[in-house]
Computed example of a mutant assay.
Amino acid sequence: MSKQATLPVTYTVISDFKEITKMRLSLSVVFSSMAGYLLGAETVDFTILFLLALGGYFMVGASNAFNQIIEKDLDALMDRTKNRPVAAGRMSVNVAFAIACLFTVLGLGILYVINPQTAMFGAISIFLYTCVYTPLKTKTPLSVFVGAIPGAIPFMLGWVAATNNFGIEPGSLFAIQFFWQFPHFWAIGWFLFDDYKKGGFFMLPTGKQDRGTATQIIAYSVWTLLVSIVPAFGFTGRLQLSIVAAIIVFLLGLGMLYYAIQLYKKMSVQAAKQLMIASVFYISLLQIVYVVDKFIR
Rank of each mutant, 00 (worst) to 15 (best):
P205A: 08
M276P: 02
A98F: 08
F191Q: 04
W186G: 03
I261S: 02
A187S: 14
A65G: 12
G107Q: 05
N83P: 01
Q181F: 05
Y37I: 00
F145E: 08
Q68Y: 04
L128V: 14
A175P: 03
M91G: 04
I296L: 13
V132I: 15
M256N: 11
A214Q: 07
K72F: 12
T236I: 03
F166S: 04
L263W: 02
A272G: 07
M203L: 15
A53T: 05
F103V: 04
I296K: 00
F182E: 08
Y112S: 14
Q274W: 01
Q177N: 15
K139C: 10
G199A: 07
G56C: 11
I69C: 10
S33P: 01
L252N: 08
F97P: 01
T130V: 11
R90N: 04
S33M: 05
W223P: 08
A161F: 03
C101R: 10
W180D: 11
V292L: 12
F66Q: 06
F17L: 14
R80S: 10
F235Q: 13
V292I: 15
A53N: 05
P231L: 00
L54V: 13
L106A: 15
S242Q: 04
H184D: 07
A232R: 01
G55T: 08
I14C: 09
F182H: 02
P141A: 13
I247L: 15
K197A: 14
Y11A: 15
V230G: 08
K82E: 00
P116W: 09
M156I: 02
A76G: 05
S63Y: 00
C131R: 05
I261W: 12
I149N: 03
D194E: 14
V292P: 08
A162N: 04
T47C: 10
L263G: 05
L239F: 10
V160E: 06
P205E: 01
F66W: 12
A219Y: 11
L106Q: 07
F191W: 09
D45T: 10
A162E: 02
V44S: 09
V93E: 15
A148W: 03
I48W: 03
